[in-house]
Amino acid sequence: MKEAMIAAKKPAFSFKSALEQFLAFGSLILLIIFFSIASSNFFHFSNIVGILLSTAVIGVLALGSTFVIITGGIDLSVGTVMTLCSVMTGVFITTLGLPVYIGIIGGLLTGAVCGLISGIAISRFGIPPFIATLAMMMIAKGLALVISGTKPIYFTKSPVFMEISQGSLLGDLIPGFEVPNAVLIFFIAAIVGSVLLTRTIIGRYNFAIGSNEEATRLSGVNVRNWKIVIYTITGVFTGLAGILMASRLNSAQPSLGMGYELEAIAAVIIGGTSLSGGKGTIVGTVIGALIMSVLTNGLRILSVPQEWQTVVVGFVILLAVYVDNLRRRKA
C-alpha cells in the first residue's frame, strides 16, 4: 500500500512532466537543427558560445521573474532595476574606488532592496503587482540616470571586473573550452533557483500562493511576508543580471535596460510558466530564454533584418502560449 501510494505517482508523474518539458525542449532542438541545416555558420562552437553569452543576462533576469510569476504576480521593474544595479556597482567600484567584491555585493543589495520595496508595496499596502512594479520601473530608471549623471560609468580602472562576465574559468581548466564565466554563472544561478523552487519551503509556498493565495493564508502561512521574500529574491537575481551586464559591456549604461523585463517575461512564458500562477519550472525558463536567443541568432545568421526578428519572436510567443493552452485543455 505504502509503496503503491508513492510508486503510483512515479510513472504517471514523470511521464507527464517529461512530456510537458519536451514541448519546449523539443522546439529548441528543432530550432537548432533547422538553423544548422539552413546555415553552415550556425553550429560552430564560437557561435553556440555566442548564443549562450547573449542568453546569460536575459536568462538570469528571467530566472528571477519566474519566482514572482509563479505567485501569480509580475515584476515589470527588472529591466531598469538591473540598470540601477549596474550603475550602483559602477559607483562603488569606479567612483568610490572600493574593491570589486564590495561593488558586487552593492549591486546585489541594490536589487534586493528594490525587490523588497516592491514586495512591501504589494503585500503591505495592497498595491497590485503590475502597478507597484511599474512604479518601481520608473523610479529605478530615474535613479539610474540621476546617480550616473546620465553618463556611462566605465570600469577601466578595475580590469578584474571584466573577468566576471568575459573571463573563462572553464577555459583555464579545460584548454580550448573557452566558455565565458557569464554562461557559467547563468547555469549556476539556474541550479540555485531550481533548488530554491523545488526543494525549499520558499518554493513550496511560492507555488501554494500562486495556486490559491487565500487558502494558503487560511492555512496559517504568513503570505504577506513570504511574498516580500519572493520579490526580494527576484531582486537579487536582477542585481546579478546587472553585474553580468556591466561586466560584459565593461561599463554601466544608465539608459539601457528598459524593455528587458518584457523579454524576460517572454522567456518565462515560452518556458511554460503560467501567468496566472501556481505552475512553472526553472528548466522551462532556461529553455525559454535559449529559444529566444537561438531564434534571434539564427535569424541574424540567415540575414533576416532585425525588425523582422522581433516580429518572429512575437509570433513564437503566441504559438508557445497557444500550444500550452491546448495541452492543458487535454489534461
Binding site: R204, F207, A208, S211, N212, E214, A215, L218, G278, K279
Partner: peptide, 13 residues
C-alpha cells in the same frame, strides 16, 4: 474550493 484547496497542487502538499 475557494478557501480550502490548492486544486492545482498534489495531495501531499
Amino acid at each position: 474550493k475557494h478557501l480550502g484547496c490548492l486544486l492545482d497542487m498534489d495531495v501531499k502538499t
